[in-house]
Design a binder for these strands. Structure first.
Lengths: 227, 227
DNA sequence: GAAATGATGTGAAACAATTCACAAAATACA
DNA sequence: TGTATTTTGTGAATTGTTTCACATCATTTC
């Protein structure tokens, strides 16, 4: 029954992303020491939460001395395996696929899109630094670059089919931009990113806000995930 | 202290998105009646959860008879104010901005990007169905189309500056693609979408999986948000 | 039309996450 | 050196969420 449910992105991991973003900024500003309340203030969580999260990942600070910015950043880089290079493939070179293939932040963070794929031979000619292949060459590339993670930006209709093939060829994690709930074996991680939903939730909350208009009830409306 | 923390996207709202996606599919397949366990099976949650979520939004079904697919869909459309047209603006016509401006799903769901903006006059010439304006015309467009929600796809460096301007001009909700924690007044909703983080979390879990390799501990690793 | 069935809806219980409260340790300073 | 101060780290308490268990009711069946 729960065959394709995945519990992913534990809250504390999401917050680690926040802390890291702050730390990078603080490092640039030349701050050498941070305290749990510094990060707390910057990210809008409590300082106890910061310390609890750290303890979950085994991060230790110095009593009174706080945390060393560089050390802390390094620990976080390790959590996300940033020391290693990660070879990623991208399937679907539509509007979104093209944008993702050019997304410079991926490279900055050691995530290299080694190849992109599309079913349409015309799109395979699109000029880009990254080669665009036909899907028939998936196996070859996945094997050669030992790819474990794929970005899926294909149309809804072909998402499941492509996923099945990816899983067959050994892909273990997928960031899925198609608005479909993919069915995959237990051991494959799916992270769904649905741009419409992201926009619609904002519309939803803006409307709630307008209805409630500055009342205290707002606090209640916003329980759940923190950003 | 918590000035720019926002609690958004309550879990049940996120799940409502899942249910709706299923319902749309079921409707296309001609299914007229659904039961809580139908949706539960399809989305990977429990049937009690489905009913609890529904009760939160005041959705009532028929004892024994389940829910009518069309009625249920309509209720959900109303939750997300889909009956109304929503005028959105998009700021930043880089790779991602261009892809978003062409994203057909937005239009399918009554979310119209009425105008796009960029600081670079060259990009303002880019061919598109949607006009690309200079930022100096923000006020005019926001007022004319009564825009309340904006998509922010500008570089990190200018994100806060543009946000301040948007807020000043009456924008109440922002989908932010820049990897920055924006500072906004209490009554403005921010939804951060960080593509690198989405990819990195998959890499994280794939690595955990490889380490743990099929053990029962995996269940523990995945607690938190459900997808 | 009475009994059996199958679904909803919801308090109560179990579980999970966050906050509180404070001991412990490191530093600063007299 | 000893006392005051500041910050970490973590059990305990609280708060929030999910699951359980079952009363309720509409429908079907006999």
């Amino acid at each position: 029954m729960k065959q394709f449910t995945k519990y992913i992105i534990k809250n504390s991991l999401k917050r680690i992303f926040l802390y890291r973003a702050c730390l990078s900024r603080l490092k640039l500003m030349g701050v050498e020491k941070v305290f749990s309340y510094t990060l707390a203030n910057e990210t809008g969580v409590t300082s106890e939460q910061v310390r609890k999260d750290f303890s979950e990942f085994g991060i230790k600070g110095n009593k009174k001395g706080g945390y060393n910015t560089n050390e802390l950043l390094e620990v976080m880089e390790n959590i996300f395996h940033r020391n290693k290079e990660h070879n990623i493939i991208l399937i679907g070179m539509g509007n979104l696929g093209i944008a993702l293939s050019k997304h410079s932040q991926f490279i900055q963070r050691n995530m290299n899109i080694v190849a992109t794929f599309d079913i349409d031979p015309f799109k395979q000619k699109v000029r880009s630094d990254i080669p665009v292949y036909s899907l028939s060459r998936l196996k070859e590339i996945i094997d050669r670059f030992k790819v474990k993670v794929a970005i899926l930006a294909v149309p809804e209709i072909s998402a499941q089919e492509v996923t099945d093939e990816l899983v067959r060829l050994g892909i273990k994690g997928i960031v899925n931009f198609a608005p479909v709930l993919l069915k995959v074996p237990q051991d494959v991680i799916i992270n769904n990113v649905n741009l419409c939903n992201e926009l619609e939730s904002v519309i939803y909350y803006v409307h709630q806000q307008i209805k409630a208009d500055g009342s205290k009830n707002l606090e209640l409306l916003y329980k759940g995930m923190k950003y």
